[in-house]
Structure formats: structure tokens, C-alpha cells
């Protein structure tokens, strides 16, 4: 039986009827149409489905949609502000941190969470902060470079 949940996504309130066994990533993608959150493995290994849940980056394939009831989520679609792209997004573009782009949304969200908590991370902390996000294209170095370039 579906359950009605109330969830804030990118500052918008939604009421969604979800099945108990539905994952958060599926709800975001297929119910809300927020397809920037990607599904790469379904098992919490790749980080492509990273969203920020109540301030913490998590793999949304490991969270049940019902568990998002009453909580706030930021997806990649909510990273761009009123003044345009987030500095991280700009840096990803400029530094060549994007190739196939499938890991990019999750990567940006992990990096954003890191910088929100620690605006001046060391390179090791940056690597640690994106260690849950797999990228098969870039070898990470241009991504690390991009994050570094917007660190304080």
C-alpha cells in the first residue's frame, strides 16, 4: 500500500504517494522527474545517486522513499542558485572535471557538502570527501583540482 509522504526537495514542498519498498532515488527520478540524480549500481557503491539529505550527503539508493518523510533534500537541480551556477559547478566546467557526466551530479553534491562543512579542505580531505563517488573517466585529478580551486 502506498503511503503519502511530505518532502522538501530543493526548497519545494512535495506530497508524494510512495510504495514502502521504493527507494529515494527512484522517487526522485521517476515520481518527481528529477533525473539529475543517477542510478549507477543500486547498492551504494558508486555514489551516482548522491543527494544531500538534511545536510548530509547520502546514496539515495540506500534510503527508502518513506524515510524521507518530513525531511529536506537537495539534488543537483537545486545546486544552482539565484545568481547562477554554484562556484563548484563553474570550476567543474573550467577544469575539465566533466567527461561522460554520469558521476558529475553526485560528485558536485559530495564536494558541495564537503565545502559547506569545511571551506578550506586539504587535498587529502578533498579526496576523502569524494571517495564515495566513482568516476571511471577522469581519474579524479581534474575533479580534485576543481574542488581545490574554490576552496578557501
Amino acid at each position: 500500500m502506498k503511503k503519502l509522504i511530505r518532502v522538501t526537495v530543493n526548497d519545494m514542498e512535495y506530497e508524494v504517494a510512495v510504495k514502502p519498498n521504493q527507494t529515494l532515488v527512484d522517487m526522485l527520478r521517476y515520481d518527481l522527474g528529477l533525473t539529475g540524480t543517477k542510478n549507477g549500481c543500486g547498492e551504494g557503491d558508486c555514489g551516482a545517486c548522491t543527494v544531500i539529505l538534511d545536510g548530509t550527503p547520502v546514496s539515495s539508493c540506500l534510503v527508502l522513499a518513506v524515510q524521507a518523510d518530513g525531511r529536506a533534500i537537495t539534488t543537483i537541480e537545486g545546486v544552482e542558485g539565484k545568481d547562477g551556477l554554484h562556484p563548484l559547478q563553474k570550476a567543474f566546467i573550467e577544469k575539465g572535471a566533466v567527461q561522460c557526466g554520469f558521476c558529475t551530479p553526485g560528485m558536485v553534491l559530495s564536494a558541495k557538502s564537503l565545502l559547506d562543512e569545511n571551506p578550506g579542505p586539504s587535498e587529502e580531505e578533498i579526496r576523502e570527501g569524494i571517495s564515495g563517488n566513482l568516476c571511471r573517466c577522469t581519474g579524479y585529478l581534474q575533479i580534485i583540482d576543481a574542488v581545490k580551486s574554490v576552496s578557501k
Binding site: 528529477l34 540524480t37 537541480e77 545546486v79 544552482e80 566546467i93 573550467e94 566533466v98 557526466g101 558536485v108
Partner: peptide, 13 residues
């Protein structure tokens, strides 16, 4: 700058 990067960093691609 890649022609597709702007869409990709926004999750729009």
C-alpha cells in the same frame, strides 16, 4: 570548455 559541460554539471544532460 566542453560544449556539454554546462548541461552535465546541472544534471540536465
Amino acid at each position: 570548455v566542453r560544449v556539454d559541460a554546462s548541461d552535465k554539471v546541472r544534471g540536465r544532460a
